[in-house]
Design a protein around this nucleic acid. Sequence first.
DNA 1: GTCTATACCCTGATAGAC
DNA 2: GTCTATCAGGGTATAGAC
Lengths: 204, 204
Amino acid sequence: MAAERGRRRPGYAPGGRRDAILDAALDEFAAGGYNGTSLAKVAERAGLTQQGLLHYFPSKQALLVALLNRRDEVDADAAAEEDGRVDLAEVVRRNVERPGIVQVYTVLSAESVTEGHPAQEYFRDRFERLRGEVEGRIRKEHGDRLPSGVGPDEAAALLIAAMDGLQTQWLHDPGAVDMPRLVRTLMDVLTGPARGGKARDAED
Amino acid sequence: MAAERGRRRPGYAPGGRRDAILDAALDEFAAGGYNGTSLAKVAERAGLTQQGLLHYFPSKQALLVALLNRRDEVDADAAAEEDGRVDLAEVVRRNVERPGIVQVYTVLSAESVTEGHPAQEYFRDRFERLRGEVEGRIRKEHGDRLPSGVGPDEAAALLIAAMDGLQTQWLHDPGAVDMPRLVRTLMDVLTGPARGGKARDAED
DNA sequence: GTCTATACCCTGATAGAC
DNA sequence: GTCTATCAGGGTATAGAC
């Protein structure tokens, strides 16, 4: 389902040029943002020239869009594997091991609020979809009103916001915030006192 | 206290060139980020040439630093007026009226996690200071352990994170999230059931 | 499919006239 | 204090050889 997009997709297999370029773009956009990264840098990391890169992606903007779409496909595949669940605590645990991914996401989601940024629509839609998914999951698990008195829609927006904000703090100073623990804490507090399975493991 | 910095500060008064340039830089950095903004654009908005601008600020980096420092002074003055309190709910209420300010902050705080960004140190320090201030305020008002069982340090990191994350969502889609309401909700939930003065006003 | 060559514009910054 | 002139470099993108 997430596997076909264009007609034939030249070189999607591992080792394919297209994917190598997208990998390089991910690293470079993470390191410098979209505006701060040149096609030449991406190309060099992928092992070809800037003009060679433009054979696969006709413009810098197209490269960014392709990168974001690929991310969605990977996520969709992963979600399918674990049966459609959206376990935020698990997402956070994984993210701590992948600072690169976290950094592209953090940088691009903020950079894209600027005028005419090519990822504007992407992130607006993504936030909307994400809020809906998390809200639905909360509603299914805890009902239409959480014990804390908070609505599932509010809890969803707050959880997503906190995760993003914590990522920014964490990227600036990885030792300063314990993301998995804090997200766990917030979930516990939102979903009400001593509810939703095993609460905290450690005592403090 | 926050009023002197250099020796004499040429033209700090309203109408002063220096301040006009910083105002322009604020708007332009908000619209395009640091990397996405040229000195020429800032200069044009301020009503002089790029080279004229460089007479006041020797480099683009110096301009950014000056901008961030001025923001701190303004904040410090404002905080002094209301007697050192850090009322987050009030901050959010005000921010909704100033999308420009919110946008520079959001864009720059994320952009500055990139390699070699000139505002890295500024934001790392700012987050650290902010966490400390909010934690201290919570501790003074609610004690060393909140009724919810959450520590003041955790609550501080979460509140700041949620505010920043909500700003990003809000900038992408202003109608999608009610920032003041959501922050209020989070504060209530963190500080425990029906504590901390008047809880929610509306019923729903 | 990948390269060289190159067009064309924008960038931050310097030198120096007025 | 502000401008014109200018530099050296880098940006995206196109044309066309191989």
